[in-house]
Design a protein around this nucleic acid. Sequence first.
RNA 1: GGGUGCGUAGCUCAGUGGAUAGAGCAUGGGAUUGCAGAUCCCAUGGUCGCCGGUUCGAUCCCGGUCACACCCUCCA
Length: 461
Amino acid sequence: MLKVYNDLTNKKEEFIPIEPGKVSMYVCGMTVYDLCHLGHARVMVVFDVICRYLQAIGYKVTYVRNITDIDDKIINRANKNDEPFSELTERFIQAMHEDEDALGVLRPTEEPRATTHISEIVAMVESLLEKGHAYVGSNGDVYYSVGSFDGYGKLSGKTIEDLRAGERVEVEQEKRDPLDFVLWKAAKPGEPSWESPWGEGRPGWHIECSAMSTCCLGDTFDIHGGGADLTFPHHENEIAQSEGATGHKFVNYWLHNGFVRINEEKMSKSLGNFFTVREILNSYRAEEVRYFILTSQYRSPLNYDNEHLDNARGALTRFYTSMRGLPEVEPAGAERYREQFTAAMDDDFNTPEALAAMFDLVREINRTRKSDESAAAAMAAELKEMGSVLGILQGDVEAFLRGEATGDDALSDADIDSLIQQRLDARKQKNWAEADRIRDQLQEAKILLEDGAGGTNWRRG
RNA sequence: GGGUGCGUAGCUCAGUGGAUAGAGCAUGGGAUUGCAGAUCCCAUGGUCGCCGGUUCGAUCCCGGUCACACCCUCCA
């Protein structure tokens, strides 16, 4: 039985979809004015794994993740670059897709963009106006009237009084209440804009998610996800908008992932202490980054540290080493580990615990392979299948362990094979000094040799 | 100040109302190896933040307290 931690109730709850066998899920995606950083990667990987697991246990998942392709930051960046905003966003959408692909993140079912859903957004704003949840300011902005919505604060656990007490924003003159937020922003001269009943303008940030999620998944859907910083105000406002407009419950389960931290500080664009996915992929393999993300439960903070990425390499090496040299056969023989794995994932997608189950299986494979290679191979196939739910261990075993030659003076595979052959000859003659010299020489080049019963394996360390 | 979490092995993290609290890495020993590596076995290592309550029994539930993080402003 799958249980998920629901931020709406602050409890772990049994997951019951609206429609048996199907799951509708919406995740707040990127604002595309810059490259993805590790925080974005975490959202992508976490919800990718959630989606994969839901599919693995038999659900047909409709996974929608939006792209915010119009907002202040985009306009500012485009102005700074002196280019049309749409060129900027196209470029970073493409970059985002490249990063996702690199990280093995499966594409969502749909990736709606704000600029292609203006009519749905306008329709929702109109509906909110009709129902008395919104008003038009004299400057042409349309605002949501927070006080008109009874349930405001139910997701973030705040009350309107608390919010007033913590008020830190300059009051905008047009707003009737400082807590009100903009639904439709009137265009200033030269800004990109769309027609609306209230004049030329563009959507506010919160309304696009309400409009697009409702449009793609219906008034009520199963799961809404995103980073923890979106809980308030973004998701709170989405609830107010959607429930205000449709009169129906918006979302049954709210899931938020924790932050990536670096040096005990939140990694964020405003602090400028972020690593882009690309930078990290210069030093580490995508699978290592993915593994690193999965070593913590999705709601917990994730501390960035090179040492942790190095550990990821070690752990994956252990996984791949257990599969090395075994034939590809039908999975079998790992029932108890599979149960352990499923129990972990059923418990709010507990990937660290799921990985522990896989480590237990690795030991079992290594124990078994000495006496019964075909049984070990079947278990290795089980391991690979579990890995597929997490999006790891799908690569070629030898390719992973041997890695890629880097640098101009790096040895080619052929060079290495030739040196290994020379060493084998030396060993046959019990010329240990020469054998060890070759091994040390290879080790200088980060090539580690492993003598076994079936010959000598090598890997890059 | 308000909200939401969290505090478990040296590090990163799991877990549980009850018998010796687990994993990976790290450390020590053994097996294997020409030596190593990989692997297996064993071991070291935790007063489960602190105080109190409920209970036959709490690390786990409840209350309080301290520390930390995030949110209350754009942010994944």
